[in-house]
Design a protein around this nucleic acid. Structure first.
Lengths: 348, 348
DNA sequence: TCGGTGCAAGAAAGCGCTCTCAGGCGGAAA
DNA sequence: TTTCCGCCTGAGAGCGCTTTCTTGCACCGA
């Protein structure tokens, strides 16, 4: 293929290709879109003409008639944050969102679909809604983890194909992908128990997230069934710094803790630091189990034992479900739940 | 404004608004685009009709005629990596790229322009070129740091507005934004010298990056002018793990090193770990200065003294320069160089 | 009163593409 | 040879919008 720079920024049109090939515009269109009913000889002539003119379809014209944009939005909704640069920084620096982006990008790539990443807070929803209604994208991957977030419902009412990253707090006929949070918490509890820990505690995620509630609840209720009640918990914020502060507080109030379940790896990194600063050895004095198995788990010392959730695969699955939904909008919503696994390293 | 869900996924068209308002389509268009020559009374009638019908312009139709898409691409070009999921993971998890994304997003937001993030390796350039030629975006922010990367030139030849993240290796009439790398290296050297360090060494970035060469060269030549020659250096890869390995190697070969300049914070984190594992105290036995001042600098223990490059501001500036270029394509290329600063914490 | 002027609104021509529909041509059957 | 059928190609409408050009109208000066 001869790649030739567009002259004057002006790409050739399909008409010019048609003329060069001595056929009609319709035939060129058929060749480009792979219609089977084109004579092989003509097809080749057209393809040569396309190569020679350096023709590239104009996507605006194409989507005007097909009503497809070949891109999807990845909307990251964090309702409570003010929309400032530190908010953006936290979003784009958080390994969790990074893994989601990576997973979605890689799944979308073979479909030749591009991702538009849209972070949003609650003051900003109307922008997002407008963006979606304008037809910029064919569908939405919606990362929304907070209970009160109205965005999933709003997007659903728009009628645009969407897949949400977690089971919606209130029932909604929408596709979602999630991990079995309670099972994850239970795996952590089992492992700590098996190590011989008896004075357990946990640092949860923000409690306005159903996932945080499920992890906390799953942890406590499993232990309760094993006769261990009154498990101390403090609410964290999914940051390193928050994890450090929470661990410090927990150990201050309950100095005899010997096992800690922390609801994210990032928080675990901070917690590990606090525990060791307080003179406890990990895992001998205090065993720590994280959650996520993100790259942060390998940045910890000792290396973090953690509950793996396959975030990339989950995001890829979201993308696939979305693709299916775009292809066949009539179909019933589909939800997929992934199983977490225990990854044993050094911290527990 | 009455926000009303599109019935059946079908948005109202401008014709319907025109009919509802009892005016022509042209007038509706003028109202929407803020043309001054519309009677105030009619303007209001039209606006009411827009609100009542829940009209939202169709972007495909609009860009077909305006030849604007209101989005720009952020192309992250890492030539040597195979395009697999671990590549994507590294890209989207690296705080450097995260900061760039955050900075660009925040600068573009007031312009109502959206970002399409496109990671690419060298096997993939034709995809990117095709994407750009199809008119998906109005311009490109190109993150390309490797000397041999042909993408900047290819994009430039496309004639599409573009801004590159670093001075191109070979002269190219293209706008770019960069930081004064040599000055950064010099600040690090000065600081280490001022602390009393005399046996200095450095972990550089990959040497096929002009920025890495500049940091290395700037470091060495400043020291040479101060009578310190033969400064050992090993080539790193901008990962934590690479930093750890490099530091280990460096201290193995030169056990008397008392000051270390590491070309990124991520590598510094690993280096700090290696240095301390080897039984040296930081900063007393070995002082360490990083580069970036990313969030990783605060994850280090001791907290990392580092050379700050204002990545978010640089990305924002790239976005602004690009906007200006899109608005006035004729203008001469513009390049902006930012000054790095020394941020003193605990490690040096 | 009449012609000229200026301004606001409408008519209509595309933007580049897809896709339906109709037409033409060749081959097979009679 | 004629008729019919089926397959391939071309003509043309139309996607929803912007924008130029034209028209209509009110107002002013002569």
């Amino acid at each position: 293929m001869t790649t030739r720079p567009a002259r004057g920024g002006q790409n050739p049109t399909m008409d010019q290709v048609a003329e060069a090939a001595g056929v009609s515009r319709a035939t060129v269109s058929r060749v480009i879109n792979g219609a089977p009913s084109v004579d092989a000889k003509i097809r080749e002539i057209v393809q040569r003409a396309i190569a020679e003119t350096g023709y590239v379809p104009n996507v605006a014209a194409r989507s005007l008639v097909t009503r497809k944009s070949n891109s999807v939005a990845l909307v990251i909704s964090e309702p409570d944050r003010p929309f400032d640069s530190s908010f953006l920084n936290r979003i784009f620096t958080d390994p969790y969102f990074g893994r989601i982006t990576a997973g979605a990008t890689s799944a979308l790539r073979p479909h030749d679909i591009h991702l538009v990443i849209i972070p949003t807070d609650s003051t900003d929803h109307h922008h997002v809604i407008r963006y979606l209604r304008q037809g910029h994208v064919d569908g939405v991957l919606l990362i929304s983890s907070h209970e009160q977030d109205p965005l999933p419902r709003q997007v659903h009412e728009l009628g645009i194909p969407a897949v949400v990253s977690a089971r919606p707090a209130s029932p909604l006929a929408v596709s979602f992908v999630d991990v079995d949070q309670r099972l994850g918490a239970r795996l952590a509890a089992e492992h700590l128990l098996a190590r011989g820990c008896r004075r357990l505690a946990t640092i949860s995620g923000p409690l306005d997230m159903p996932s945080s509630q499920d992890r906390l609840d799953g942890f406590r209720s499993y232990l309760a069934n094993r006769g261990i009640g009154d498990v101390p918990a403090v609410e964290g914020d999914f940051t390193r710094h928050g994890g450090e502060a929470s661990a410090r507080r927990l150990l201050g109030e309950h100095p005899d803790i010997d096992g800690l379940f922390v609801a994210s790896d990032l928080m675990s990194e901070g917690a590990l630091r606090a525990v060791q600063d307080l003179g406890r050895r990990v895992p001998d004095d205090v065993a720590v189990v994280g959650f996520d198995d993100s790259s942060a788990a390998l940045d910890c010392r000792p290396l973090l034992t953690t509950i793996r959730q396959p975030v990339e695969e989950m995001a890829a699955e979201m993308a696939e479900v979305l693709m299916a939904r775009i292809a066949a909008p009539g179909r019933l919503p589909r939800s997929v739940t992934f199983q977490p696994t225990l990854v044993i390293r050094e911290s527990a």
